[in-house]
Amino acid sequence: MATPTVTKAGTDVDILSGLRRKSDIGGVLFRWLLLGSLLFTLVVLVVLLGQVLIDGWPILGSRLGDFLSTGLGSKPETSGIVQGLRGTFYLCLITAVVAFPLGIASAIYLEEYATRGKFATFIDLNIRNLAGVPSVVYGILGLTIFVKGPGIGAITGGSTPFAAGLTLACLVLPVVIITSAEAIRGVPTQLREAGVGVGATKWQVIKDHVLPYAAPGILTGTLLSVARAAGEAAPLILIGSVTGFMSGHPAWWDVGQVRESFTAMPIVITAWARQPQEGFKVDNAAAAIVILILFVLLLNSAAVVLRNRFEKRREG
């Protein structure tokens, strides 16, 4: 920091020593208190990860392959998470397919087309408000519109991955819009001016210059939103995801299952954690958590790495 330092006593710099207080115990303590809070958070994270690893180890260490490939059952020793994995996979897929184009197009509209009028301000406020709506309320939306809505319910087939995916798409839409809009805002104006200057139309400038430049930022936001969707449980409970036993055992690539009853990783974890039996409650739940965390952290770290590279490129 910028505090003056006295190099040698008795030299002409010595005048400064009168100005310098001897020690700043309060300041040092304050600094350590702040750092301590951050380190405490780190410790909590380490304890959390350690606890689930230790709890899940009996399964992860002995029958991981079996755990990943068998379905839900009535005994902890023979239960697996394959239905949860498949459910979460299809949920993420549907969420991404619906929310990305909608969200990115909204962001393009807000940043490139909308004039600073009442309509744009209203949309903007609305999006920020949507981002704060509790996820369980999105579950009500999903239940009323996508599961039971006249017409829509017949298309989605009721409590299915299709309906749940659409609900999660609504849930992450504000996140996709906000992060994409930020990325687009970061594109230098000169890039657009240069494009228009050589005769490109607005859409050509957006498609060929703005979007490629903003792509890493947009991708970061979309990856984070998929991670968010993968970890959400509350809306799925409201929609009527299966929390008990499931007989259906379709293959991974059987697309027809998006219109069948379903479960998902967070739901499997919740159901197991609430069981009275130790085997389900501890071993199975923790093992499933480890798998879910691995998946979510993989997406998150991909997003962080992308963003760091993106920032470096801009600086360089």
Binding site: S106, A114, I123, I127, V137, P174
Partner: peptide, 30 residues
């Protein structure tokens, strides 16, 4: 080319309205 430009703008603004539709549907369902 002009027509395409207009069409793109309509599509984008329709997408932006989707967020309003979501809000309306949330309130409706509640």
């Amino acid at each position: 080319r002009q027509r395409k430009e207009r069409r793109v703008k309509v599509i984008m603004s329709a997408a932006a309205s989707a967020s309003i539709l979501v809000s309306v549907l949330i309130i409706y369902s509640l």
